[in-house]
Nucleic acid binder design. Structure first.
Lengths: 244, 244
DNA sequence: TGCCGTGATCTGTGATCACACTTAGGCTGG
DNA sequence: CCAGCCTAAGTGTGATCACAGATCACGGCA
């Protein structure tokens, strides 16, 4: 919370900020908005592992009272994306090496299944979108001056486009929960040593994944995605930033 | 909320009810207690699909103020175990047939993976516990007057003993989230037509599952558990209580 | 100089109040 | 007798206050 502004650019929400009845069909509560803001920060690596949060700080930073912040943080704690220490302090969990390996195994199983289902269910439109994200990612990492932020966003968009193509929304929700927990460590390490991107391991896995999806090869898609996750995890482990 | 008391038997929590510092190491907040109470009700079928909840009613029923109820309901809504209608009314979601089938597919994938891992990782102690739950379930359904409540609890204990034997806590948490969502419909239908228990389909699947676990046969365990879930789901579909 | 005690400050949690909104029931006017 | 409005009760959401506990820095004693 120290380093980034949670606001959307140019938007400055205030406490009594509901002049128009929000037009849309579904009502978006302030608590949900704060939740989404924190969630995006976590997945994008805007919050480092071990970083402490304060309900009052979050609330003030977003221009709301403490209540929406409470609800958002409470939900994130329930998702284990945040944790409250016995001191009552809230912080981004510091993942231990064992926990990281466990999460990686679960990811390979769950996301691998999603990729396999996607290979069976993907349509031409979704496939085109996936290929676009793949191209964007490849273009970014091959650029002479790669933009880390954009590359990781393209990577995320590619993955979730695949998962959504499986046609199982509950599965996507589960995967989002997993990304919420590995996001901080993954992004932090990527940020600290961007050479991983240039190595091209991810590109190769992505290419194999897209090819398998296009061919309707479920097991091929599962294998490619598993290799992608495993490769990324192996890199993270070598950086040694994980707690013992 | 109309039909059951959320209190543990003989326990009557009151608002200012913290004379002793709760002894334990981790502090259990009131919000978490309410969450656990509602969660158990949902998994055990104490709340029917479509049933409406009210924060004030929940709070009063548990002897707390509205705040802990808010937090608990908010978390359950985040888990999709409850839903808030555009009217701002909170109710147990009414699962559609398509959604039920989707959840079943995800369950087979995720819980099947857990069973396979359990076959690889289970130790003698955990295996004994699993066998005990299996025996309890078999004893209950073979009894001349089966106690539905006890049978379903034994079934749940058996399943989760297997999942925990996999040694992947994050996976167990995911599965709990899934059970939270199918619990109401599953329990309701079981309650309305208990003959399913007597048919013995579940017993056979359980026996095959336990045998596979004892033999370290991962794929056998996965197959047995998948068959158990599929059989149960097929039965639920025949009762036709699901929304179109 | 080093260490312990102590108070100010900050934390999350719980309770209470206020508000916009929905909904259901009763009353009035036809 | 029926249809219409319209009030009153009930809803979740947001804000504010109160409080126990933890943290940390400062100051005084040894």
């Amino acid at each position: 919370m120290e380093r980034r502004d949670l606001h959307a650019p140019g938007r400055e929400p205030r406490a009594g900020d509901r002049p128009e009845p929000e037009g849309g069909l579904a009502r978006i509560t302030l608590g949900t908005q704060v939740y989404d803001a924190l969630r995006d920060l976590l997945i994008a690596g805007g919050l480092a592992p071990g970083e402490r949060l304060s309900l009052r700080t979050v609330a003030e930073r977003l221009g709301t009272s403490m209540m929406p912040a409470r609800e958002a943080v409470s939900r994130l704690v329930a998702d284990e994306a945040l944790e409250v220490l016995p001191n009552r302090a809230v912080r981004v969990p510091v993942i231990t090496l064992d926990k990281f390996r466990e999460l990686t195994r679960v990811r390979i199983a769950v996301e691998g299944f999603a990729a396999a289902e996607a290979a069976r269910a993907v349509g031409p439109g979704a496939l085109a979108a996936i290929q676009a994200h793949d191209a964007a990612f490849r273009h970014e990492v091959r650029s002479p001056e790669p933009d880390l932020e954009r590359a990781m966003r393209a990577n995320r968009d590619l993955h979730f486009a695949v998962y959504e193509a499986a046609g199982l929304p509950s599965l996507v929700a589960i995967i989002e929960g997993l990304w919420l927990r590995i996001g901080p460590v993954l992004n932090l390490d990527m940020r600290s040593s961007p050479r991983r991107l240039a190595e091209g391991g991810a590109q190769a896995h992505h290419a194999a994944l897209v090819a398998a999806l296009a061919a309707g090869d479920a097991e091929g898609a599962r294998a490619a995605l598993s290799a992608d996750i495993a490769g990324s995890a192996a890199f993270i482990e070598t950086t040694g930033r994980l707690a013992p």
